Simulated assay, not measured.
Amino acid sequence: MLFTVSTPVSRKAHRVAVGALFFLQGLCFSSWGSRIPSIQQQLHLSEAQLGAVLFSLPVGLMLSLPFTGWLTSKIGSRKVVTIALIIYSSTLVTIGLCQNILQLVVALFFFGFASNMANISVNTQAVGVESLYKKSIMASFHGLWSLAGFVGAAIGTFMIGAEVIPLHHFLIMTAVVFIGVAIAYQYAFPQDAKVSANQPIFVKPDKALMGLGLIAFCSLICEGAMFDWSGVYFQKVVQAEKAWVAAGYTAFMSTMAFTRFIADWLTSRLGLKRVLQLSGILTAVGLTISVVFPHMVTAIIGFLLVGAGVSAVVPLVYGVAGKTKTMAPSMALAAVSTIGFAGFLVGPPLIGLLAGISSLRLSFAVIALMGISVALLSSRIKSEEA
């Protein structure tokens, strides 16, 4: 049974606990991601069938956005993140038990639903802890999520090598998450700002939140493109040898994770607006280098810059959104996430469409414009937000 400590909790303990929750969330996602090929083989799915099945995950995520913001504002992020991570990790086991496509579609829908519940509530927790420090620390939390991605991928690689079936792998990870949540709950941030029992489920974001959502939208178009198309770009445009096809993705992920751990430090010295502008410029420059000079070394350098560019945008935007005075932090985060995540969904198919019309290089050049858009939109952030 979960219980709370009776003695006052230090802000450092809150920070460690919320960081652990971010890590556990990332571990759930990366555990699933590392075993997608195994699940595909286990259910004998073609690439087309797998693509259709995977679409149920973002559907669940998008449908949960307004509900999660409302629920978090009603009962508090501490309870919601606990419930969400328990469901999130348990759904991993359900995925491992799936015997047909229909079961997998349903399981992934709830996996996506719980994923966003965890995302909104844990970011609301981070906003609360950040208020104790009175400086930007949001990016470091997202850095822990990225670190969990590497750890989860490494564990998945080991499990595959040891011929451990997905169900047993997921059972182990679920046990880890359960134990981690039980410990972290005691030290999680206890009370969100402006929790309202009468908060409506749907709230129209104000102009400031719309602007933040658009910044996230443009950045997540780039991020989604890199997640889904970096390997294809290295294979077909860079014409990398088979062993080096994943080099671009690895470069992108490495700098994205590393830069998140220094983004808060940079923000405290340069200011939010300048860091966001620099992020957009780095993204645009990195993609442009990869398009103009599609060779192994230059493309890797370009992807390194893109990783550094997109790394801080969403964490910093979330941090600003959570401080809004117009609605509960969870509702503001849900509003910005709804706009931003649309970019994550639009990016990959947009690249495919443009590549079909012209070429993959042209599509990456168009995506580079999204980096410029981040820089331009960031310049409109008001001084009190920056």
Results as ranks from 00 to 15, higher is better:
Met1Asn: 09
Phe3Arg: 05
Arg11Trp: 02
Lys12Leu: 13
Lys12Gln: 09
Ala17Thr: 12
Leu21Asp: 05
Phe22Asp: 04
Gln25Arg: 12
Gly26Tyr: 00
Cys28His: 02
Ile36Pro: 08
Ile36Phe: 01
Gln49Asp: 15
Gln49Ile: 09
Gln49Gly: 09
Leu50Ala: 13
Leu54Gln: 14
Leu54Gly: 11
Ser56Val: 07
Val59Pro: 02
Val59Tyr: 09
Met62Lys: 05
Met62Trp: 09
Ser64His: 01
Gly69Glu: 06
Thr72Ile: 06
Ile75Leu: 12
Arg78Asp: 04
Val80Met: 13
Val81Tyr: 06
Ser89Leu: 14
Val93Arg: 10
Ile95Ser: 01
Leu102Trp: 14
Val105Pro: 03
Val105Asp: 04
Leu108Gln: 05
Ser115Val: 02
Asn119Gln: 13
Ile120Thr: 10
Val129Gln: 03
Glu130Ala: 10
Met138Phe: 08
Leu144Pro: 02
Leu147Cys: 04
Val151Pro: 11
Val151Asp: 11
Met159Gly: 14
Gly161Glu: 10
Ala162Tyr: 10
His169Ile: 00
Met173Phe: 14
Val181Pro: 01
Ala184Leu: 15
Tyr185Lys: 01
Gln186Ile: 00
Tyr187Met: 12
Gln191Arg: 13
Asp192Lys: 03
Ser196Asp: 13
Asn198Ala: 11
Gln199Met: 15
Lys204Asp: 00
Asp206Met: 01
Leu209Lys: 02
Leu212Met: 15
Ile215Tyr: 14
Phe217Asn: 00
Ser219Gly: 04
Ala225Phe: 00
Met226Ile: 13
Met226Ser: 07
Phe227Asp: 05
Gly231Arg: 10
Val232Gln: 04
Lys236Cys: 00
Val238His: 04
Trp244Thr: 00
Val245Phe: 07
Ala246Leu: 03
Ala247Gln: 11
Gly248Asp: 09
Phe252Ile: 13
Met253Asp: 01
Met256His: 13
Phe258Leu: 15
Ala263Ile: 10
Asp264Pro: 12
Leu276Glu: 02
Ser279Tyr: 04
Gly280Ile: 03
Val285Ala: 11
Gly286Ser: 03
Thr288Glu: 10
Val292Trp: 12
Thr298Ile: 12
Ser311Phe: 10
Pro315Thr: 07
Tyr318Val: 07
Gly322Asn: 09
Ser330Phe: 13
Ala334Glu: 02
Ser337Asn: 08
Phe344Val: 02
Val346Thr: 05
Gly347Asp: 03
Leu354Lys: 00
Ala355Phe: 01
Leu362Asn: 10
Val366Asn: 01
Met370Trp: 04
Leu376Glu: 07
Glu384Ile: 07
